[in-house]
C-alpha cells in the first residue's frame, strides 16, 4: 500500500531523506575538507587575517608536505603506527576468538562471571590505567619502545573483541557444531573448520574496530614514548609539530590527513569482505 504512492510523493520522500542526511554529511566531512585546504595553503595566506579560510586563494603549495617528510620523522611514525596496529590487532583477535568461543559456547564453572569481568575491564578507561601501566612498562624494560604499545594495546582490545565475538559466536546455530562433534571432530577442529568460516563477518568486524582503535590510540602512545623515532603517527604529528605555542598548521593538517588514509584503506578493503561474508552467511542459513 505504501508503495502505490505517486511519483511526486516518492521524490518528496527522497528529498526529505537526503535533506536529513545533509547536515550529518557536512558535519562529518568538513574537518577533512578543512585539512585538505589548510595543508595546501601557503603560510602567508594562512596567517593573513583578511583571507577567507575556507578555500585557497593564492595558489596551491606543497611546502607543508615537504616539511613533514624532510624535517620530521613522519615516515617512521607511520611505519611505527602500522607495525603496532597490525601486531596488536592480530594478537588480540586470536586471543579473543579463543576466549569468545569458550565464553559463548562452552559450559564451565564461572563462565558468566568471566563474561561480566571482561565487560567491566572493557569499561575502565585508559585514563585510569596509564599511570600504573607506565610503571609496568618500565619494570619490563620496554619503556620508550613500540614493543610496549604492542603489549599494552591488547589490554583494551581483548575485552572489546571478546565481548563482540562472544555475541557473534552465540548467533551461530549450535546444531552445526554438534554435527561435527558427532562425526568425531575435536573441539579445536570444530572451531577452526566449522565455526570460524561462519564467523568471518564477526571477525572482520573485530579486526576493523581493533585496527582503528590502535591507530587512533593517544594516551598510552604519548605517555610511554618520548623518543621521536619511536612515536606513532597520531602522537608524532601532535607533539612534534606543536612546539610550545607555535603550531605548524599546514604540516599538522598534512600529517593528520595522511595519517587518516590507512584507516580509509583498511575500511574500503575489508568492508567488501564484510558484506560478502554477510550474504554468504545468509545463503547458507
Amino acid at each position: 500500500m505504501a508503495m502505490v504512492g505517486s511519483r511526486g510523493a516518492r521524490i518528496r520522500s527522497n528529498v526529505f531523506a537526503y535533506a536529513n542526511l545533509a547536515p550529518y554529511i557536512f558535519f562529518v566531512l568538513f574537518p577533512f575538507y578543512f585539512m585538505v585546504v589548510t595543508s595546501f595553503k601557503s603560510n602567508a595566506e594562512l596567517y593573513n587575517l583578511k583571507s577567507i579560510p575556507f578555500w585557497i586563494q593564492s595558489g596551491v603549495v606543497t611546502e607543508h608536505y615537504a616539511l613533514l617528510f624532510q624535517k620530521t620523522e613522519f615516515a617512521t611514525w607511520m611505519k611505527n603506527s602500522l607495525l603496532v596496529a597490525v601486531v596488536a590487532t592480530t594478537a588480540s583477535v586470536v586471543i579473543s576468538i579463543l576466549a569468545g568461543y569458550s565464553l559463548g559456547r562452552l559450559r564451565f564453572r564461572g563462565a558468566s562471571a568471566f563474561g561480566t569481568a571482561i565487560f567491566i575491564t572493557y569499561l575502565v578507561p585508559p585514563t585510569l590505567l596509564f599511570l600504573p601501566l607506565s610503571q609496568v612498562v618500565v619494570w619490563l624494560g620496554l619503556a620508550d619502545s613500540i614493543a610496549a604499545l604492542m603489549l599494552i594495546y591488547p589490554t583494551f582490545l581483548v575485552p572489546f573483541c571478546t565481548w563482540l565475538l562472544m555475541g557473534y559466536f552465540r548467533t551461530i546455530p549450535r546444531e552445526v557444531e554438534e554435527c561435527a562433534l558427532v562425526d568425531g571432530a575435536t573441539r579445536m577442529q570444530t572451531l577452526s573448520k566449522i565455526v570460524l568460516p561462519m564467523a568471518v563477518p564477526g571477525i572482520i568486524c573485530a579486526v576493523l574496530f581493533s585496527f582503528t582503535l590502535c591507530w587512533n590510540e593517544f594516551t598510552y602512545a604519548l605517555t610511554f614514548i618520548s623518543q621521536s623515532g619511536h612515536k606513532t603517527a597520531v602522537v608524532g604529528v601532535t607533539s612534534d609539530l606543536i612546539r610550545g605555542d607555535i603550531y605548524f598548521w599546514g604540516s599538522l593538517m598534512a600529517g593528520a590527513l595522511l595519517a587518516s588514509i590507512p584507516i580509509v584503506i583498511v575500511y574500503v578493503l575489508f568492508l567488501d569482505y564484510y558484506v560478502s561474508g554477510l550474504t554468504a552467511g545468509a545463503v547458507k542459513g
Binding site: 578507561p125 585514563t127 585510569l128 599511570l131 607506565s134
Partner: peptide
C-alpha cells in the same frame, strides 16, 4: 581534567603516587 592533571603531576612531575590519586577520582563515577 583529571587525566591531564594526573599526567602532569604523575609522569612529568615524577610524583607517581599523587598522580594515581588524582586519576582515581574518576573511580566513583566509573
Amino acid at each position: 581534567l583529571f587525566a591531564t592533571l594526573a599526567y602532569q603531576v604523575g609522569l612529568q612531575g615524577g610524583n607517581l603516587g599523587q598522580g594515581a590519586a588524582i586519576s582515581l577520582f574518576i573511580f566513583p563515577l566509573l
